Simulated assay, not measured.
Amino acid sequence: MSYTTMSNIKAEMRTNVMRSLYESESTRGVAKFEKFSDFENAIDSLDVQFDEVIYLKDAIDICNNSDFFSYHEEKYDFSSCNSYEDCAMLQARAIFEHVQMDALNEICAEITAEAKEFFDYVEENMYDEDHNVAQIHLTTSDPYGWAAHDFETESSINVHTNLENELYAVSFELYSYCFYAAIDKNDRVK
């Protein structure tokens, strides 16, 4: 386990959250969301697997890492420990679980805030003649690949227009996954 710094834990948690979100909502390689509340519900119901402390070396690293000193405030019951090693493992496992839970909450809030900007942009700009808002998809790669987008918003949303300068698609990459929405040639949302 090499996740014994706060930044490594958060990076791993971002990957786990996005993978879990994609896998929990995916059908045939694409996750779909009708509206932002669907996305929020998916985030709230994620089942993210935490790593465990298995090796004594990792336990000692966690107990001695300054990133985690604020987690040492908790009182641990060492009465069941038979050795220093048992105590180090008990303390490290408790610290690591708390650190991962805090990272999960922080990352979910971060992902939700960034996705909200994309959902808002789609709701404001991507609708058909009947005012149906385009469905938002989540994939493992941008479906527009290396196709040039016409411009990028301040929120890093890639905007694609056709030759008549009409908006037809938007995409937004977030932690190696891609949100996108599109309107087809018949002015219908997809």
Rank of each mutant, 00 (worst) to 15 (best):
S2C: 04
Y3H: 10
Y3T: 07
M6I: 07
M6Y: 12
N8V: 08
K10C: 12
A11N: 14
E12W: 14
R14L: 10
T15I: 04
M18K: 04
R19N: 12
Y22G: 06
E23D: 13
S24A: 15
S24F: 03
S26I: 01
S26Y: 00
R28D: 14
G29F: 06
G29L: 09
K32N: 05
K32H: 04
K32A: 09
K32C: 08
F33R: 01
F36K: 11
F36A: 09
F36D: 04
S37W: 00
S37G: 02
D38E: 05
N41D: 10
D44Q: 13
D44P: 00
D44Y: 05
V48H: 02
Q49F: 07
D51G: 10
D51N: 11
D51E: 09
E52A: 10
E52Q: 12
E52L: 09
I54E: 13
Y55L: 14
L56S: 10
L56M: 10
K57F: 02
K57R: 04
D58G: 12
D58N: 15
D58T: 15
A59F: 10
I60D: 05
I62D: 04
C63N: 14
D67Q: 09
Y71F: 15
Y71M: 07
E73Q: 11
E73G: 05
E74L: 12
D77H: 11
F78P: 00
S79W: 02
S80M: 10
S83Q: 03
S83D: 02
E85M: 11
E85S: 15
D86F: 05
D86P: 03
D86Q: 08
A88M: 13
L90K: 14
R93A: 07
R93E: 11
F96M: 14
E97Y: 04
H98P: 00
H98K: 12
Q100P: 12
N105A: 12
I107L: 02
C108T: 15
A109P: 03
E110Y: 11
I111E: 06
T112H: 06
A115S: 15
A115P: 10
A115K: 01
E117W: 02
Y121K: 06
E123Q: 10
E124S: 07
D128A: 09
E129D: 15
E129T: 13
H131C: 06
N132D: 13
N132Y: 11
A134P: 03
A134F: 01
L138Q: 03
T139F: 00
T139C: 08
D142F: 03
Y144Q: 13
W146P: 01
A147T: 09
A148M: 09
A148D: 13
A148E: 14
H149D: 10
F151T: 13
N158I: 00
V159Y: 04
H160I: 01
T161I: 11
N162V: 12
L163E: 11
L163Y: 06
E164N: 08
L167P: 03
Y168R: 04
A169V: 05
A169D: 02
S171V: 03
F172N: 01
F172Q: 04
L174H: 03
Y177K: 12
Y180D: 14
Y180F: 14
I183H: 00
K185P: 00
N186H: 11
D187K: 13
R188L: 15
V189D: 03
